[in-house]
């Protein structure tokens, strides 16, 4: 038994044998993918919510189909579908163009798949938030001769932020945790690295507890950031006495 064995946790393995560093690299990869997926989801969400609110009938129907399907099918199934079907499609196209077999980059696939899923949820969050913007503020923008794009960028989007941020912070937390699903693709994010570490040392308790703590710390820091963002976004609104 090592000297650094506290409460059944083998800290020696984490601190001195390089496994801790491996977990941190896994965490870094998880956060990178989560950030990419969240950003992609946000971009999809902005365009899709605008399309759902102001688009023509066909656009609305297509977007409705997207948000309904993506929100109905489990993320894990979507990840497997998009990853394997996507890989087949990419290789079919590559074959037609005369290229040899293309290896799908796990990180890029992760960002794409999770971003596609996040997009469906942020579409609904942003759509609801846009609907909460008093219509008079949008009308004032039009009355002063702003283009539709200028009204959106200068008025609608900043004005909807206070209503959207709680939902978006939630989505960010979900994005961080959903990266764990990429473990099934063998991608070396935090959960996958933890499984490897635990398997090869047989110290399951130590490693899964350590991974859980890392996810928790990342969430707590995110909460601090999102609370500050909310205060900033609500700067023009009277204090909510319930807050």
């Amino acid at each position: 038994m090592s000297s650094l064995n506290i409460l059944g946790l083998n800290l020696e393995l984490l601190l001195n044998e390089g496994w801790g560093e491996a977990l941190l690299i896994g965490l870094y990869r998880s956060l990178t993918i989560a950030f990419g997926a969240f950003a992609l989801g946000l971009v999809i969400g902005i365009f899709a919510s605008v399309g759902k609110l102001y688009g023509n009938a066909i656009v609305k129907q297509l977007l409705e189909l997207y948000t309904t399907i993506v929100r109905s099918v489990p993320e894990l199934v979507l990840i497997l579908i998009v990853y394997f079907v996507g890989a087949d499609l990419v290789n079919a196209v590559a074959g037609l163009l005369g290229y040899s077999y293309v290896e799908i980059n796990g990180a890029a696939a992760g960002v794409f798949v999770l971003g596609f899923v996040q997009g469906a949820y942020s579409t609904e969050v942003i759509r609801g938030a846009i609907l909460s913007v008093p219509v008079g503020q949008i009308e004032a923008g039009r009355a002063f001769g702003m283009t539709g794009a200028a009204v959106l960028r200068r008025i609608t989007l900043p004005a909807m932020l206070p209503a959207a941020l709680p939902g978006l912070s939630n989505l960010w937390l979900i994005a961080m945790k959903d990266t764990a699903l990429l473990a099934v693709l063998g991608f070396g994010e935090l959960t996958q690295v933890t499984r490897q570490a635990a398997g090869s040392t047989k110290e399951y308790f130590t490693f899964f507890l350590a991974a859980g703590c890392l996810y928790l710390i990342a969430s707590l820091i995110s909460n601090v950031v999102s609370r500050r963002l909310e205060v900033w976004a609500r700067r023009g609104l009277p204090q909510d006495i319930r807050a």
Binding site: Q137, E139, A140, I155, P158, G236, L237
Partner: peptide, 26 residues
Amino acid sequence: SGAQIRRIRSRLAMVFQSFNLWTHMT
């Protein structure tokens, strides 16, 4: 013409019953 109506609106200022100031701006 979107350009024409925007140009005209930009010099035809409107004051609303419920003010409609942009709340996220000073």
